[in-house]
Design a protein around this nucleic acid. Sequence first.
DNA 1: CGTTTTGCTTTGGCAGTCGAAGTATCAAAC
DNA 2: GTTTGATACTTCGACTGCCAAAGCAAAACG
Lengths: 187, 187
Amino acid sequence: MRQINSDIEVSRTDMQLGPMTSSIPDRTDASLIALRRIMRATEIYARDLAHQAHLTPSQLRLLQVVADETDSAAKPTDIAGQMGVSQATVTALVDKLTARGLVQRRPSQRDRRQTYVCVTETGQGIVDNIPDALQQRYVRAFTALEDWEQAQLIASLERVAAMLDADAIDASPILTSGDISPGPRTK
Amino acid sequence: MRQINSDIEVSRTDMQLGPMTSSIPDRTDASLIALRRIMRATEIYARDLAHQAHLTPSQLRLLQVVADETDSAAKPTDIAGQMGVSQATVTALVDKLTARGLVQRRPSQRDRRQTYVCVTETGQGIVDNIPDALQQRYVRAFTALEDWEQAQLIASLERVAAMLDADAIDASPILTSGDISPGPRTK
DNA sequence: CGTTTTGCTTTGGCAGTCGAAGTATCAAAC
DNA sequence: GTTTGATACTTCGACTGCCAAAGCAAAACG
């Protein structure tokens, strides 16, 4: 056994966030653990998948985001919003995908400041053939569920999603009041 | 700017389902959409959170993974496994965290090839003060649910998690409750 | 012993990411 | 019509993330 001399105790006292939480019940814990497993499994799987398409995860994601739009075209700003990254990042990604002929820039007529990123046929071909990261493993299991289970699952997932989204819009969670200083910065 | 539109990829319909779109029922689709929303919201939020601590997402994650171990210490190999990255990457991350005094390398006595990565007091302080990415926003909503809803939610989530990590992915990373009590840990 | 295996670090290289500065365009006020 | 200020995007520079492969010890095996 490893007995590193670490007397640091992870004292698991209660969480005190806000007025309402005195302790996190096991149930919350359980659901969070499940959520994490979901995200972790998916994340790792997504990496593999992108790799199989000879793309990076971000590139594939951008491709999917754009392909998902009604005309397989989207403005960089929107893409950035959807992906949760900056415009600069989108530019870089689009550059790379363009170099591979998977997407294409097309200037807007209405507003010439704008550019549309469009998926090319080649790009669309990839998107069509790469199963969605979640899908491959998920669909199989999901379809095997009883009818009522499926319905319940959806309801629950949407509920969770709503919980998270709602806060995301508000986005000024507790911690914003101050930074947490990590000690000496060695940049 | 952190605008998370509620219309998140709801417009999606047929794409990315590959050649056999028709075989996938709407329900599967609906649940996948919800799952994506969950992951997206969480991912983005986690970035912000790490940023507030002047850390990168990966660095924070490593810190949390290690702090979560029984002795707040872990071997690089295990960390890599938990995080789904290579050993080399772990080395790099540990280097950076070490430079900031948040973790510490400590050679093992029994096997001198091994090194333990230990969270320092400073590091522990950060972990304690960073509410878990999910937790903060999630707990609030979750605790407000009816009893039966909570139970159902857990069942569903665990079911999904089970669907996804068919691989023996270790499941209980981070999540031991956040603990906003700051008190300096005395060794 | 020597050989292989194991655990970690180093190296080299590419991709992702952002902030800040730059460019072009539109839009509204003058 | 010109000025002024926003908007949409790109460029630039600097960092981090990540990995494969090579390197280095120490341990385990024979």
